[in-house]
Amino acid sequence: MQTSFFLQQLINGLSLGSMYALIAIGYTMVYGVLRLINFAHGEIMMIGAYTALFCITALNLPFLAALALAMIFAACIGIAMDKIAYKPLRKVPKISLLITAIGMSYFIQNLFNILFGARPRLFEAPEYLQKVFIFGNLNISIVSIFVPVLTFFILLFVLYVLYKSKYGIAIRALAFDVSTVNLMGIDANKIISIVFALGSALAAIGGVFWALNYPSVDPYMGVLIGLKAFAAAVLGGIGSVVGAVLGGLIIGFSEVIVVAFFPELGGFKDAFAFIFLVFVLLFKPSGILGINYERSRF
Rank of each mutant, 00 (worst) to 15 (best):
S165H: 01
F274V: 12
F112E: 03
L198H: 05
K166Q: 11
S96D: 10
V259G: 00
P126K: 05
I25N: 00
A231Q: 12
F176L: 11
F116K: 15
N113L: 11
I169G: 05
P126F: 06
C55S: 13
S179E: 15
K166C: 02
M46W: 07
C55I: 14
S216R: 14
V30Y: 11
G42E: 03
M104W: 01
L249W: 14
I44N: 05
L7C: 06
Y167A: 10
Q8N: 08
S286L: 09
N292Q: 13
I37M: 07
A229E: 09
V158M: 11
G267C: 08
A204Q: 01
F107T: 15
N213D: 11
A170F: 00
S254V: 05
I77N: 00
N60K: 11
G199W: 08
F272I: 15
P93H: 13
F262M: 12
F298V: 03
M184Y: 06
L155Q: 12
F135Y: 08
T151Y: 05
I56R: 00
F135V: 15
I171E: 05
Y27H: 04
L36V: 15
L277A: 06
I114V: 13
P93I: 12
G168Q: 02
T151N: 11
Y31V: 11
A40F: 04
F272C: 09
F6W: 12
I114L: 14
G252S: 11
F5S: 07
G287Y: 01
G290D: 05
I142Q: 02
C76P: 03
L69G: 08
S96W: 09
I291G: 07
P62H: 11
G207L: 04
A232G: 15
L115H: 02
V33F: 06
A229R: 07
L281R: 08
N139A: 13
I142L: 02
G32S: 12
L59T: 11
C76Y: 08
E294W: 01
G266E: 09
Y20E: 04
V241Q: 05
L281M: 13
G136A: 14
G207E: 02
A173V: 03
L89V: 11
A65Q: 12
L14H: 10
I145T: 04
A244I: 03
A70W: 01
G48K: 04
L150I: 10
T51N: 07
N292R: 12
G136H: 14
T51M: 09
S179Q: 14
